[in-house]
Design a protein around this nucleic acid. Structure first.
Lengths: 167, 167
DNA sequence: ATAAACTTTCAATAATTACTGAAAGTTTAA
DNA sequence: TTAAACTTTCAGTAATTATTGAAAGTTTAT
């Protein structure tokens, strides 16, 4: 496998994996391209590499910037804008986890809390609804807080502290 | 908020959350319905409650069974099939984590490994591709194994062992 | 001020994904 | 063995989501 083949494989795999971490294909592919690039890329270069339209590139770059994963960079002597992505995977994971928590998990926790707080009416069904949504609420909240705490650790928590727990 | 309202809110919220854990809306809604039901439900009842077609119900129940989340139950004296879902949230989380690992994460790890193993050709770009995909490979593998180990713990690991690490 | 260089927006369209319903298939009871 | 009760399959259609491309918007240089 040569460079070009490997690059394409990486970009398309990471692209189709996008759904796993909650973003669309083009967005994931742009991030992948920037992630292995040795220099900032212009919109033109991104369009060219991925064969996508100007509009699509613009919209997805904007979303990546909203996520805080991609930033505009000025290149000396150039008028147009250039883009770079966070290169440290640890930091990348931290950002993604935080954003997903904020965007998706937190709102669900809120609703589970509301639903699990309806008042008892003595019926079996109501009791079950309360019991099960409460259990889900607890699980979701615990996992969310765990993930947030994990990714907050600046040092290499993964290989150091946590793994040995499960040796 | 009364029972009916709470039930509907729960089902629709859980349904739209489906994407977060990688399944479609109808699938998630069926699971939600079974999750708060006090008794096994027939296909007829599920169709009726969620206002979805027979075909859709059948296909999604099948998928839920493939995931190992839903099982057929025999009800005495009844000819038709009834369905139940795993009721323990902890066990549910375990199943989902394992399945997603198997279906989505493992294949990606394999590809990252392949890509990061291309041989150096001295160029800057190749060096960067290898470096970055290797970093991603390590992160993905570590997280995957962590999750699998976490969910393998039978006891209530979450609230007990792990959280206090991050106090 | 103006025009070239560049970016964003968004209505139209394409691609993807989900859903329906009826026909085909299966199981059970008599 | 047959027919009623039930489930599955799948071609067609609907709904959703992603993408294009050109017009409108913005910035910079002169």
């Amino acid at each position: 496998m040569d460079y070009l083949e490997a690059k394409n494989k990486f970009i398309s795999t990471w692209g189709s994996l996008g759904s796993l971490w909650g973003i669309n294909k083009a967005m994931a592919q742009i991030q992948a391209l920037l992630f292995i690039s040795t220099k900032p890329l212009s919109m033109e270069e991104i369009m060219e590499e991925l064969k996508i339209s100007r509009g699509n590139t613009s919209m997805n770059l904007r979303q990546l910037m909203d996520w805080g994963i991609v930033t505009k960079t000025l290149v000396a002597g150039e008028r147009k804008e250039f883009f770079t992505t966070e290169k440290d995977v640890q930091e990348l994971a931290r950002i993604v986890a935080k954003e997903r928590s904020r965007r998706e998990i937190k709102p669900v926790i809120k609703i589970l809390n509301e639903v699990s707080s309806i008042k008892k009416d003595g019926s079996e069904k109501t009791k079950e609804l309360i019991k099960q949504t409460r259990a889900l609420h607890e699980l979701t909240e615990t996992m969310d807080s765990m993930i947030n705490k994990l990714v907050d650790q600046k040092q290499n928590w993964i290989t150091k502290s946590v793994l040995k727990l499960f040796k």
